[in-house]
Amino acid sequence: MHCLADVALTPVGPAEYGFEEALASCVPILEKSGLTYVVHDGGFTIDADWQAATDLIGLLHQRLHDAGFERVHSDIRIGTRTDKAQTMQDKVDTVERQLAFPEQ
C-alpha cells in the first residue's frame, strides 16, 4: 500500500550536537533509501510504500540513538488513498493553483 508519511522527530538527551544537526545527520539514510522525501522544519515527509516508509522511520530512530540521543520521539501522520495515485507534489500543485486562482 502506497502512503505519504509525515514524520516529526524529536531527539532527547545527551548527544554531540543539536536538533538541526541531528536531522541533517538523517539525510544520508534518506538518500541511501532511494525513496522520495522532503525535509521540513521538524523532520521529513516520505512518499513510498507503507512498509518501506515505516522501515525507514525505524532507521532514522536508530541513527539518532547511535548519535547519542537517549530517547527519540516521533509524531507520525500517514495518509493512504485507494481512489487515485497522488504524490506530495500533486498536493502542492493543487494548493498553488488555488492560490493563483482562488474561487470567488
Rank of each mutant, 00 (worst) to 15 (best):
Y37N: 10
Y37D: 07
Y37W: 14
V38F: 11
V38D: 11
V38A: 15
V39A: 08
H40R: 04
H40Q: 02
G42N: 12
G42W: 12
G42C: 10
G43W: 02
G43A: 05
G43Y: 00
F44H: 01
F44L: 03
T45M: 10
T45G: 04
T45R: 11
I46H: 03
I46E: 00
D47C: 11
D47K: 10
A48Y: 03
A48W: 04
A48R: 06
D49T: 08
W50Y: 15
Q51L: 15
Q51W: 14
Q51C: 13
Q51F: 14
A52E: 12
A53Q: 04
A53L: 06
T54E: 12
D55L: 12
D55S: 14
L56A: 06
L56T: 05
I57Y: 02
G58H: 05
G58Q: 08
L59H: 06
L59Y: 03
L59D: 03
L60F: 03
H61E: 14
Q62A: 10
R63L: 00
R63K: 10
R63W: 00
R63A: 03
R63C: 03
L64R: 01
L64F: 04
L64P: 01
H65C: 09
H65S: 09
H65I: 13
D66R: 09
G68K: 00
G68L: 01
G68V: 00
F69M: 08
F69P: 01
F69G: 02
E70R: 04
E70D: 09
R71W: 07
R71K: 12
R71S: 09
V72F: 01
V72H: 01
H73R: 07
H73P: 00
H73V: 12
S74V: 00
S74R: 00
D75Q: 13
D75P: 02
I76H: 00
I76D: 03
R77I: 02
R77H: 10
R77Y: 01
I78E: 06
I78M: 15
G79N: 07
G79S: 10
G79R: 06
G79W: 05
G79A: 08
T80V: 13
R81Y: 15
R81T: 15
R81Q: 15
T82F: 09
T82R: 08
T82E: 09
T82P: 00
T82L: 08
T82D: 09
